[in-house]
Design a protein around this nucleic acid. Structure first.
Length: 477
RNA sequence: GGCCCCAUCGUCUAGAGGCCAAGGACAUCGCCCUCUCACGGCGAAAACCCGGGUUCGAACCCCGGUGGGGUCACCA
């Protein structure tokens, strides 16, 4: 599941790479064996591609620094760990998880910060450590974090951020399972893969001083860092499913177009000029300035996303919209595939009528469904409202006859028939239009009635009107 | 709680010391268009968190407070 915060970060990386003619690299960080599954990796790649973020280097594509999955790079991490062990920058630690938990508990009780700097193992003689390892004792490799001094992160969007080394513990490099921790693997990979820029979520800012320490201990040059803020829900809490949708899949399922999500996410906190908002990925890249990205977390606004989505729906050609609508109509049961295929031009015209009224593609079946099928079921309460009026009861049968007698079933002819009768009875045409709309579409809102009826076709329109008339007869006087 | 980041309309933002009695977009509310809805047009309401400095002058610089966020794992 690719969270919108994650996509936005990926998006910024992509924009930055495009803008600077760089390379956008995808690396799978799957060192957490329990959490990372084949399916989750596939889904991630699918989401990235759906929104239009193709990577230049990475899984499936390959590149000069293969492989791009951390679980396939284990040797590299072991090698680097050995280097740090040899130089004395790291040490073997035999503390058990239980002991560590207890230490933390103790620190908490004494209101101390739980900063682990194992005096016991930090100084242990390498020979002794080796002995215990050979004896089969589980161990981790920890970094020997300096006790004093400070580490400063030169962040591209925040400037220098200073951390006291004394606040950093001796963090784990290699877990007892033999796999590296995120902080360690990320550094080794970023260095080996020659990453020039690391643009990632805000939540990694506090990891960065540790990583910088590792870079230095390994003798690697530092990449440039940029930490982009999180995406929040309306309650200013981290955006999650309970805010409606939080992952790319969910937005897709809720009728959001990939280009709309792309555009919206790129705008969110990226510091673009505010005079215009609809941009193609290329335009976005052209204007992207990492230094202008806002340092403060942005609230995700579903309504604005939908409004941008609406713009992209309107920008689609009618043919594209028809292609989009067809499978949805089949799935909703509104129309059969054969029926649609036999007359795509008609669907195209229908989409022309409805495109201004659709905010999400998932609105399509409901907005368009009644253009297909025969007789309709009417909501009794609304039916009473529309057909219970005296004027309607007295004139609708006559109107139906005139419509049936129309030589040409065109928008103009239909309009003339309706307005003509209303004029003769000296009543506003709306007194006929509203019930007729309800009879022919089964709803109180639709596109213009005349064009709607023309597209509905004579046969279907009259069929529905006649049914409504029959039901009108049953209404109590 | 410690450490770190951040702070302009409800939301996203423009603003990089005088051009700002703060501009745009979404949302909201009017009006117009009109057969309903939508689109479109016009208009309204709506913000520089607070307090100190610096300066001739501060939304913009500095300090403090407050508020929000992040992070404190053998998760990434």
């Amino acid at each position: 599941m690719l969270h919108v915060g994650g996509v936005r970060t990926a998006l910024f990386n992509w924009l930055f790479a495009r803008k600077n003619s760089g390379t956008f690299v995808l690396r799978i960080e799957d060192t957490d064996l329990e959490r990372s599954t084949e399916e989750s990796v596939e889904q991630l790649k699918r989401s990235l591609r759906w929104i239009g973020l193709e990577w230049d280097e990475g899984p499936e594509i390959g590149g000069p620094h293969s492989p791009y999955r951390q679980t396939e790079r284990l040797d590299l991490y072991c090698e680097a760990a050995q280097k740090l062990l040899d130089s004395g920058a790291a040490y073997y630690d035999f503390a058990t998880p239980e002991e560590l938990a207890e230490l933390r508990e103790q620190a908490r009780a004494e209101k101390r910060q739980p900063i682990y700097t194992s005096g016991e193992y930090r100084q242990m003689d390498p020979e002794e450590a080796r002995g215990r390892i050979e004896a089969g004792e589980p161990y981790t490799v920890r970094f020997k974090t300096p006790r004093d001094g400070q580490t400063v992160v030169e962040d591209m969007i925040r400037g220098p951020v200073t951390f006291e080394n004394a606040n950093l513990e001796d963090f784990v490099l290699m877990k007892s399972s033999g796999t590296p921790t995120y902080n360690f693997a990320a550094v080794v990979d970023d260095a080996l893969m020659e990453m020039s820029h690391v643009i990632r979520g805000d939540d990694h800012l506090s990891n960065t001083p540790r990583q910088i320490l590792i870079y230095k201990a390994l003798g690697y040059d530092l990449p440039a860092f940029a930490h982009v803020p999180q995406v929040l829900g309306p309650d200013k809490k981290k955006l999650s499913k309970r805010h409606g949708a939080a992952s790319v899949e969910e937005f897709a399922a809720q009728g959001i177009l990939p280009e709309a999500l792309f555009n919206y996410l790129a705008l969110l906190g990226a510091g673009y000029a505010a005079d215009e908002e609809i941009f193609s990925p290329e335009e976005l890249a052209e204007r992207f300035r990492i230094k202008r990205v806002s340092g403060n977390p942005a609230v995700f606004d579903q309504q604005k996303l939908v409004s941008i989505n609406q713009v992209y729906i309107r920008r689609k050609s009618l043919e594209e919209l028809a292609m989009l609508a067809a499978p949805m109509l089949v799935e909703s049961g509104a129309a059969s595939a054969e029926e649609l295929e036999s007359d795509m031009p008609r669907l195209t015209k229908i989409m022309d009528l409805m495109k201004e009224r659709i905010g999400r593609t998932t609105d399509i079946p409901d907005a368009v469904g009644y253009f297909y099928g025969g007789e309709l079921e009417y909501d009794p309460e609304e039916f009473q409202k529309q057909f219970g009026k005296e004027f309607a009861r007295e004139n609708l049968p006559e109107l139906a006859e005139r419509l049936a007698a129309l030589p040409e079933w065109t928008e103009e002819a239909i309009e003339e028939a309706i307005r003509g009768l209303a004029a003769e009875r000296e009543k506003g045409a709306r007194h006929l239009i509203h019930p007729l709309r309800f009879a022919t579409t089964g709803r109180t809102v639709s596109a213009g009635l005349f064009e709607t009826m023309q597209l509905l076709g004579r046969e279907r329109s009259l069929l529905r009107v006649e049914k409504a008339l029959r039901e009108m007869e049953q209404l109590p006087a």
